[in-house]
Simulated scan of single mutants.
Amino acid sequence: MHANLTTPNGRTIAYHRTEGAGPGIVFLGGFKSDMAGTKAVYLEEWARAQGRAFLRFDYSGHGESSEAFEDGCIGDWAQDAMDAIGALTEGPQLLIGSSMGGWISLLVARAMPERVAGLIGIAAAPDFTEDGYWSEFTEDQRATLLRDGRIELPSEYSDEPYVITKRLIEDGRNQLVLRSPLSVPGPVRLLQGTEDEAVSRDTALRLLDHLGGGDVRLTLVKGEDHRFSSPQCLDLITKTAEALLA
Results as ranks from 00 to 15, higher is better:
residue 1 M to Y: 10
residue 5 L to W: 09
residue 9 N to L: 11
residue 11 R to H: 14
residue 13 I to F: 00
residue 13 I to V: 10
residue 13 I to A: 02
residue 13 I to K: 00
residue 15 Y to A: 00
residue 17 R to V: 09
residue 23 P to V: 11
residue 28 L to G: 00
residue 29 G to F: 00
residue 29 G to D: 01
residue 30 G to M: 06
residue 35 M to A: 11
residue 36 A to Y: 13
residue 40 A to M: 03
residue 41 V to K: 06
residue 49 A to Q: 13
residue 50 Q to D: 03
residue 54 F to T: 04
residue 58 D to C: 08
residue 62 H to G: 03
residue 62 H to D: 13
residue 66 S to E: 12
residue 67 E to K: 02
residue 69 F to C: 09
residue 73 C to Q: 12
residue 74 I to M: 13
residue 81 A to S: 13
residue 85 I to P: 00
residue 87 A to N: 07
residue 88 L to T: 11
residue 89 T to I: 09
residue 92 P to W: 03
residue 95 L to N: 08
residue 97 G to L: 13
residue 98 S to E: 09
residue 101 G to F: 02
residue 105 S to F: 03
residue 106 L to I: 04
residue 106 L to E: 00
residue 110 R to N: 09
residue 111 A to T: 13
residue 112 M to K: 07
residue 113 P to Q: 09
residue 114 E to S: 10
residue 114 E to Y: 08
residue 114 E to V: 02
residue 115 R to G: 09
residue 128 F to M: 08
residue 128 F to H: 04
residue 129 T to A: 06
residue 130 E to G: 03
residue 135 S to A: 15
residue 137 F to C: 11
residue 138 T to M: 07
residue 139 E to S: 14
residue 139 E to Y: 10
residue 143 A to G: 07
residue 143 A to Q: 15
residue 147 R to G: 05
residue 151 I to H: 00
residue 153 L to F: 15
residue 157 Y to C: 10
residue 158 S to M: 13
residue 158 S to Q: 15
residue 159 D to T: 15
residue 161 P to Q: 06
residue 165 T to S: 14
residue 167 R to K: 15
residue 173 R to P: 01
residue 174 N to Y: 10
residue 174 N to H: 14
residue 174 N to R: 14
residue 174 N to K: 15
residue 175 Q to W: 10
residue 176 L to I: 09
residue 177 V to R: 03
residue 178 L to T: 04
residue 178 L to Q: 05
residue 180 S to P: 01
residue 181 P to Y: 04
residue 182 L to C: 12
residue 182 L to D: 07
residue 184 V to E: 01
residue 184 V to D: 00
residue 186 G to A: 03
residue 186 G to L: 05
residue 188 V to N: 00
residue 190 L to F: 00
residue 196 D to T: 03
residue 196 D to W: 03
residue 198 A to S: 14
residue 201 R to N: 09
residue 203 T to L: 01
residue 205 L to H: 12
residue 207 L to G: 01
residue 208 L to W: 04
residue 211 L to W: 01
residue 212 G to S: 01
residue 214 G to Q: 13
residue 216 V to T: 15
residue 225 D to M: 02
residue 229 S to E: 14
residue 235 D to T: 13
residue 236 L to F: 05
residue 237 I to A: 04
residue 238 T to K: 05
residue 239 K to C: 03
residue 239 K to Q: 14
residue 239 K to Y: 01
residue 240 T to A: 11
residue 240 T to S: 12
residue 242 E to G: 09
residue 242 E to S: 14
residue 243 A to M: 12
residue 245 L to Q: 06
residue 245 L to T: 05
